[in-house]
Amino acid sequence: MALIGKKVAQFEIKSKCDVFHELWKTDPHQIPNVSPTTYQNCQTLEGEVGTVGSVLLWHYFHDGKDSVVKTLIEEIDEGKKSVTFKALDGDLLKIYKIFVVHIHVDTYGSNNLVTWTIEYEKLSPDVPDPDKLFDFFEKVTKDIETHHLNN
């Protein structure tokens, strides 16, 4: 079993891609308000939100338990409408050596798509692939979509 992996999932949304991208890039503190059953809190620990190098602390609920992750905004690509978060500390790094999440939005014809890509390295072969996180990401995506369609 490979220790290094990459998983990708796409979810179609009816809301505009720009709104989704801007929320993750410049206003992640609002995500717990938009998706309170997934995220409880987001705090800036270092730097300025919306800039590469800023560090955020997330409290979230996944797989039946409260969890925490400290992330670095590693990359923001305005052209591709993507934001990359790298885990620095927290529950994910108890089982993964490396855990990076890319959130990318794009329009294909009349479809607006959110692509979640996880790059990871397991600490051992018996660690599961992070497939269950895609249910979590889908829930967050749908909550954000619903919030923006209703406002």
Score class of each variant (00 low, 15 high):
Val140Gln: 02
Tyr96Trp: 02
His148Tyr: 15
Ser82Met: 08
Asn33Phe: 07
Val127Met: 03
Ile76Glu: 04
Lys80Asn: 07
Val8Glu: 06
Lys14Ile: 04
Ser67Trp: 13
Tyr60Arg: 01
Gly90Tyr: 01
Gly50Val: 13
Pro125Ser: 10
Asn41Gly: 05
Ile4Thr: 14
Leu45Lys: 15
Val49Thr: 05
Val55Pro: 04
Asp89Pro: 11
His147Glu: 07
Val34Met: 13
His102Gln: 13
Gly47Thr: 06
Ser54Leu: 09
Val55Ala: 08
Asp91Lys: 04
Ala2Gln: 12
Met1Ala: 14
Phe134Gln: 00
Lys16Thr: 08
Val140Tyr: 02
Gln10Ile: 04
Asp91Ile: 07
Ile73Asn: 01
Thr107Asn: 08
His29Leu: 10
Asp66Ile: 08
Lys16Cys: 12
Gln30Trp: 15
Leu88Tyr: 01
Ile118Arg: 00
Phe11Ile: 12
Lys70Thr: 13
Lys142Glu: 11
Pro130Phe: 05
Lys65Asn: 14
Cys42Arg: 11
Val49Ala: 06
Asn111Glu: 10
Thr44Pro: 05
Gln43Val: 10
Lys25Thr: 01
Ile144Val: 14
Val49Asp: 04
Leu57His: 09
Glu138Arg: 02
Gln30Ser: 10
Asp89Cys: 05
Thr141Cys: 08
Glu48Pro: 00
Lys70Met: 07
Lys80His: 07
Asp135Gly: 09
Ser124Thr: 10
Ile118Gly: 01
Phe61Pro: 00
Trp24Glu: 04
His62Cys: 06
His104Ser: 07
Asn111Leu: 15
Val19Ala: 15
Thr117Lys: 00
Val49Gly: 03
Thr71Val: 09
Asp77Gly: 08
Lys132Glu: 05
Glu46Val: 14
Thr141Phe: 05
Ile76Gly: 01
Lys14Ser: 14
Glu121Thr: 12
Val8Lys: 03
Lys16Met: 14
Tyr108Gly: 12
Pro36Ile: 04
Asn33Val: 11
Val52Leu: 04
Gly53Ala: 09
Thr146Cys: 09
Phe20Asp: 01
Lys14Tyr: 10
Tyr120Ile: 06
Glu74Tyr: 00
Asn33Pro: 12
Pro28Val: 03
Glu119Phe: 01
Met1Cys: 13
Lys6Glu: 07
Leu149Cys: 03
Asp27Cys: 15
Gln40Arg: 12
Leu133Ile: 05
